[in-house]
Nucleic acid binder design. Sequence first.
DNA 1: GGGTAATGTTGGACGCCCAAACTAATAGTG
DNA 2: CACTATTAGTTTGGGCGTCCAACATTACCC
Lengths: 156, 156
Amino acid sequence: MSAFPRFPARVQPASREALSEGLLPDLLGYRLRRAQVAVFNDFVRTMTELQLTPGQFGTLVLVDANPGLSQTALGGLLGIDRSTVVPLIDRLEGRGLLRREASPTDRRTHALILTDAGYSLLAEAVARVRAHENRIASSLSPQERTQLIELLAQIG
Amino acid sequence: MSAFPRFPARVQPASREALSEGLLPDLLGYRLRRAQVAVFNDFVRTMTELQLTPGQFGTLVLVDANPGLSQTALGGLLGIDRSTVVPLIDRLEGRGLLRREASPTDRRTHALILTDAGYSLLAEAVARVRAHENRIASSLSPQERTQLIELLAQIG
DNA sequence: GGGTAATGTTGGACGCCCAAACTAATAGTG
DNA sequence: CACTATTAGTTTGGGCGTCCAACATTACCC
């Protein structure tokens, strides 16, 4: 899903009477969504100061790893539509974190590159993301965390 | 998350030149999102005939498991805002799958109950969801699937 | 060269969030 | 018992992220 779609913030199980979740807890899609809500919320808290959404963070990482990346290729890596990439890049470019440069080989495409400010912010963001990862995986042993990532990779 | 937010459909890795995903593949949030995209897309395909979104399906399951559930309690279980519950119930009620009944104990709340049509559709939907689960977990052994669900439950 | 395909952009639609306001009804307090 | 505070459901309005379809521009291929 998204760089990330917006997700509900709080999930309070409701009430005194024990409510049943039916067969939902056994469904992968349900568990996946619950887990992503939790992770998403922590990510947002982690990045409030830097003002980066998951999608924006992913963009910085990918442009850093692939200088000159095109918008369509970025969308492919991020798993979002190319029309969704436009406002994403608009905002980052507006903040001076990256630039759309002319591609020397293809005048249709924009070659995306980080600015110095973009590099600096990315470095800071990466540090925070590491702390974020430790937080969300705090109830997992290192082995469990690794295995979870591997299992997820087989599904997605 | 969502009942589910809308998610991107296709993820084509892009190109001839090997693109790097940077540190993204090691991040739980990233893997979670990718997995959920895949699961969401398969769910939508599974339910096109029944015309049920993940949120609507979850609603039917929860109302079935908790007859007389209130809308706020439903939102709590589903993890969505109570203002988001309104159009969700509107649609299901409009299709004759459930009803808002008067609660005998609290005249403010609506007691949600399934209609006969709702029960029938739910039964059919559950059958399809089981097939869907098998499909998305097809690259996992039964033990791996179980463990994935347990690990996810610890995070979310 | 002329048809086909790809890139980035726009516009319309939808689902979700939040906040605020409003009504009706319940619960708590003096 | 009366007054206040709280809660349930709804509506409205703003915002964001996503999709798809359509469009102009540019590139590719035979």
